[in-house]
Design a protein around this nucleic acid. Structure first.
Lengths: 196, 196, 196, 196
DNA sequence: GATGAATGAGAGTTCATTCAT
DNA sequence: TATGAATGAACTCTCATTCAT
C-alpha cells in the first residue's frame, strides 16, 4: 500500500532541474555503454556507478530497471523515426525506403549491444509505433508507385526486414563490422521488382 | 526433434551407464521444453525438476548451466548439419541451397523459444562449424554453377541469411507464425541472379 | 486534536519565525494523519509531501524521524496530562480516577493508528512523566480515601491500566470501535473494592 | 511468471530430512531470540547468520520473511491452544478460565519481544482460531454456570483481556517483570461477580 | 530558509553451484 | 550414484538523511 507518489494526472510535466537532467543523461549514456560492453545482464548498481551516481539516484529518475531500458528504447526508436521522417521529406520518393533502411542500419549499428534487449514484443507498445507504421506504409506506397519495390511487398515485410537487420547487426558487428551492410543489400535486391 | 541417442560426441570417454544416459536425455528434453515455454530465464532447478532428477544430477551430467545449453546447441546444430548433408546428396544440385535454407528454417521454427539463448557468438566455436562451412561452400558453388545464385554471393552471405532467419523466427513466430517464411522468400529472391 | 500552538517546550531558545512555526505544525499534523491512515510504515518523504514542504524542511524542524515522533508523543501526552489536571480540579474527587481513565481512552481513541509507534518504552523518558505520576498518585489517594478504589491498588497498577487501554484501543478500534470501552469497564470493576 | 514450485496439492506432506528439520528449528529459535532482543526490525540475514545458515536456506524453509513470522505465530498460538485444552480437561471447571489466562500469560511472557509483531489482525486467519474461540466459549460457559464469572461477560471480553495481557507483558516485562501478573489479577477481579 | 535531488547502506529475495546424506 | 538441502554473492529496490541549488 505505497502512498501515492504521483502528482495529479494533469501535472504540467515541469522540466528537470539542471543537475537532475545531467544525471539522467549520464545514466542513459552509462546504460548504453554497459549494455553494449557486457550485454543485458548488467546490474543497476553498475550502471549507477558508471554514471557516477548512487543507485538511489537511478531510481529517482527511473522507477524500475525496466523503465530505464524503456527510455533507451525510446531514444533509439526516436532516432529511427526521425530517419523515416527525413527520408519521407526527401526529393526522391522512390529511394526513400532504401535510404531509410540503410540509415536505420547505421543507427542500430551505433547502438550495438543493447538492441536485443530493447526490441522485445512487449516493449513495442510505445505510442510512437502507430506513427512509425503509418510512415513506413507511405514510403512503401511511393516506392511501389515508382516501380522501385515489388508490388507484393507489405508493411509486415518491411518490419521483417528491420528485425533481421537488427539481429544480424547485433550478432556480427563485433567480428565482421561490414557484414550487415552486405546482407541489407541482398535483402534490398530481393525487394526490387524483377525487371524481366 | 530427436535428442542425441548416442554417447556425447567426444566418444573416447567410456560410454555412460544406461541410467546416466537416460538422465542426460531427460535433462536435454526438459531444457528444450522449458526454454520453449518460458524463455531464457529458466533456472537449472526447474530443468532438473522437469527432468525428474535433482539438481546435483544435472551437475553430474553437465559441469555448468552453460555446458547444458552448449549441448542443446550441438543438438540443433546437428539437425541443421544433417539437413545440409541431405540437400547436398539430392539430385538437383542447383536447388540444394534454397532447399537447405527452407529446411533449416523449419528446424529452427520447431525449436522456438530457445534459439536466442543458444546462438551466441561464443557458442559458435563448436568443432562442427568447419564441416558446416565446407558443406555450405559446396552447395553455394553448385548453385552458382547452375546459375541459380548470383556469382557475387559468398559463404559469409549465407551465414548472414541464416542468422537473420533465426532472428526473425525467434521474434515473430508467436504472433505471426508464417512471417518468417515470407521473409526467407524475399531473401532468396535477393540471392538469385537478375535475369535481365 | 489541537496541535501545540506555542513554541516547543524548551522555550529558552528563541521562538521560531512565524513561517517556521507554521511548517512545524503542518508537519506534525501530516504525521498524525498519515500514521492514522497508513500505520507505522509511513516514510518521512510522504510526511513532508503531505505537509507541503520538502524533506529538507522537515529535517530543519526535527533532527531525525524519531524526534518528529517524539514530538507527536509529547502532544498526545500533554493532552492526557491536561485531562488529569482537569479531573483533579473537579468537585468529585472520588470519581476523578475513573473519569480520567475514560477520558484518556477517548483521547487515545482519537489518535488511533499512531499509538503503537508513539508509546515505546524508550520514549517514556519525557520530563512530563514525573508530573504525571504525581498527579495520578494524588487522584488515586483521593479515590482510595473515598472508598472508590481498593486500598491495595498502586500507581503502578494505574500505569498498567493505561497501557492495556492503549493496546486494546490500538488493536480493536478499527474492527470493534466500542470494545475498548467495555474492557475499561471490566478493569474499573476490578479496581473497585469488593463491597462484601 | 515463476515456474510452479509446488508439489501437486494432494501431496502427502512428507517429513523434512533430519538436517533440514534441524535448520528449521534453528531458524525459528534464532528468530524468536532476535525479535526478543532487537524487536521487529530484525533482518532476515541477521536471523540466518544467528541460525548459522545462509540466507538461501532461510528462504528454502520459509518462502518469505512473513512466512517465517507466521510460523513463529503458529508456534505460540499452539502453545496457547494446548493450555486451553488442558484447562478444559481439568477437574475444576469453574477455575478453568482463570487458570487458562494465567498460563497464557506465562507463555506470552516466555516469548517476550516478538508478540507485538505476531499478533496483528491479518495474521489471525489461522485455521486454529475457530477452535480457540469454541474452547474459550466452553470455558466461559462453565465458569459462568459455576458462578465464578459475571453473567454479562462475553467471549469478546475474554479476547480483550488476552490482548491487553499481551500488550502489558510486552511493554513492562523488561522493567517490571511482575507487573503483568498483578494487572491480570485486577482484571480477573473485574470479571468475578459482585457477591453483594 | 526552503527545496528536492542525491546519497548509500541495507532491505528482502534469487539462483548457479556445492556437498552432506 | 542420486538427491535435494545448503550456500552466498549478487540482484533489484527503499528510505532516512545530507547538501547543492
Amino acid at each position: 500500500m505505497p502512498i501515492s507518489e504521483q502528482a495529479p494526472p494533469d501535472a504540467p510535466e515541469r522540466p528537470l532541474r539542471r543537475d537532475a537532467a545531467q544525471n539522467r543523461e549520464r545514466l542513459l549514456r552509462a546504460a548504453f555503454d554497459l549494455f553494449a560492453e557486457h550485454g543485458a545482464e548488467v546490474g543497476v548498481n553498475d550502471i549507477a556507478r558508471r554514471a557516477g551516481v548512487g543507485p538511489g539516484t537511478l531510481y529517482r529518475r527511473f522507477p524500475t530497471k525496466e523503465a530505464l531500458i524503456d527510455a533507451l528504447y525510446e531514444i533509439v526508436f526516436d532516432e529511427l523515426l526521425e530517419t523515416v521522417r527525413q527520408a519521407l521529406a526527401s526529393d526522391e520518393p522512390g529511394e526513400a525506403l532504401e535510404l531509410c533502411l540503410r540509415r536505420n542500419g547505421e543507427i542500430m549499428a551505433s547502438h550495438r549491444g543493447c538492441l536485443a534487449r530493447l526490441w522485445t514484443a512487449q516493449r513495442a507498445t510505445s505510442d510512437r509505433v502507430p506513427q512509425w507504421w503509418a510512415m513506413v506504409e507511405q514510403m512503401l506506397d511511393r516506392a511501389q508507385s515508382a516501380g522501385r519495390v515489388r508490388a507484393d511487398v507489405t508493411v509486415q515485410d518491411v518490419r521483417g526486414c528491420l528485425m533481421s537487420l537488427r539481429c544480424i547487426i547485433e550478432e556480427t558487428i563485433m567480428d565482421s563490422p561490414e557484414l550487415w551492410r552486405r546482407h541489407l543489400e541482398l535483402l534490398l535486391a530481393g525487394l526490387r521488382p524483377n525487371p524481366a
